[in-house]
Simulated assay, not measured.
Amino acid sequence: MNRVPQHKSAQYIRCGVVVREIAPHSTNHPPITYDHQDDYYIFGLIESGTACGMIDFKELHLAQNDVFIVQPGQMHRFIAAEGIKGWLLMVDCSYVDSDEKCILDHLLLSASAFKIENTERNDLCGLASILAHRLNSNKGMSIGIGTQRMAEAFVSVVAEQAQKFTLQTKHSHRHTEIMLQLRNLLAQHIAENHQPAFYASQLNISTVYLNEIVRKLTGLSTSSYIKNEIVLLAKRMLARTDLSVKQIANQLGFEDWAYFTRLFTQATSITPTAFRSKYLE
Rank of each mutant, 00 (worst) to 15 (best):
A51Y: 05
A128S: 07
Q37A: 08
I46T: 09
E117H: 13
I130E: 14
A81T: 12
A81D: 14
V67D: 02
A23L: 15
R20T: 12
N136F: 08
I46K: 01
H25Y: 13
E21Q: 13
N122C: 14
L109W: 06
G144V: 08
V91M: 00
N138I: 04
I130Y: 10
P24V: 08
W87L: 07
P24F: 08
R77C: 09
T50W: 10
G144E: 04
P31H: 10
D123A: 13
L108I: 06
V67K: 05
E21D: 06
L104Y: 00
N28M: 11
S110I: 11
P31M: 07
E82N: 13
Q74E: 08
H25G: 07
R134K: 10
A80K: 15
M90I: 06
N28C: 10
H36K: 03
A128R: 01
D105H: 11
G146I: 12
E59H: 11
D92K: 00
F114V: 04
C102Y: 10
M54T: 07
R20W: 06
I84E: 13
L131W: 02
H61T: 12
T119W: 08
Q64F: 03
I22F: 12
E82H: 13
S129W: 14
V96R: 03
S129R: 15
A80M: 12
H106A: 13
I42R: 11
D56G: 03
D39S: 02
Q74M: 03
R134F: 08
L88A: 12
T33C: 09
K85D: 07
G44C: 02
R20C: 05
V96H: 02
A81C: 10
D99A: 14
V17R: 02
I22V: 15
Q64M: 10
I46S: 01
H76D: 01
I143F: 01
R121W: 05
A80S: 15
T27P: 01
L127K: 06
D99F: 11
K85Q: 12
H29R: 10
I145S: 10
G49S: 07
S129D: 12
I103Y: 05
C52D: 00
I55V: 14
A81Y: 08
Y34Q: 09
D56Q: 05
K115L: 08
H76G: 01
L135R: 06
K58V: 10
I79Q: 11
L109T: 09
K115Q: 15
K139D: 11
R121G: 05
I84Y: 07
V96F: 01
P24S: 05
I42S: 12
G44H: 03
Y41T: 02
S48Y: 09
I103E: 03
D92R: 01
L107S: 03
S137K: 15
G73W: 02
E100P: 00
D123N: 15
A132E: 13
A23M: 15
T33D: 10
N136I: 09
S137W: 14
L124Q: 01
S48C: 11
V96L: 04
H36V: 01
L45K: 03
I69N: 00
Q64D: 11
C125V: 11
E117C: 11
G73C: 02
M75P: 00
M90R: 07
I79P: 13
K85T: 14
P72D: 00
D66C: 08
F68L: 05
M75K: 01
G86T: 06
P72T: 01
R121C: 14
